[in-house]
Amino acid sequence: MSQQRRDVTPDDKTERGPQDRSRINLSEKYEVRYWTQKLGVSKAELEKAVAKAGVSATAVARQLGKTL
């Protein structure tokens, strides 16, 4: 049986997590869902942390007192 390679485009909405896990994109529901679950925070807490720390996942985690 041959294996088929699946090409994934950078904005493939069928993927469950963000394409670039170093940045947080609040405009995509699936990314907000991923990051709120990953960091264990509410959407409002995530939005507030992104407003203070920027879109860097590491900086947001640090702002929230979490580790990635």
Rank of each mutant, 00 (worst) to 15 (best):
L39A: 11
Y30D: 08
S22N: 14
P18M: 05
Y30F: 08
S27Y: 07
L39I: 06
P18F: 04
P10G: 10
Q19K: 12
V50N: 01
D20W: 07
K48P: 01
T36Y: 07
P18A: 12
I24R: 03
S27W: 03
V32S: 05
K48R: 10
N25H: 12
R33V: 09
K38H: 14
K48A: 11
K38R: 14
S42A: 03
R33L: 14
K52N: 11
N25S: 12
E28Q: 06
E31Q: 08
L46W: 03
V41D: 05
A49T: 01
I24F: 03
Y30Q: 09
K48T: 04
K52Y: 00
R21S: 12
S27F: 06
T14L: 14
D12Y: 01
V32C: 03
V50Q: 00
K38F: 10
K52Q: 12
R16N: 06
G17V: 13
R23Q: 15
D11A: 10
N25G: 06
T36F: 06
D11H: 04
V32L: 06
P10I: 15
K48Y: 00
A51T: 05
D20S: 09
K38Q: 07
P18E: 04
K38C: 08
T14V: 07
R21Q: 15
K13L: 13
P10S: 13
K38G: 12
E47S: 00
E45Y: 00
D20K: 13
D20V: 10
K38M: 05
R23P: 10
R23A: 06
I24N: 01
T36R: 10
D12R: 00
I24D: 03
A49E: 03
D11N: 07
E47Q: 10
K52P: 06
V50P: 01
Y34A: 11
V41Q: 01
T14C: 11
L39R: 09
K52S: 13
R33W: 12
E47R: 03
E47F: 01
E31V: 03
D11M: 09
E31N: 05
E45H: 02
A49Q: 04
S42I: 04
R21T: 13
P10R: 15
S42E: 13
A51C: 03
D12E: 12
G17Y: 14
K38D: 07
N25E: 13
S27A: 09
R33E: 14
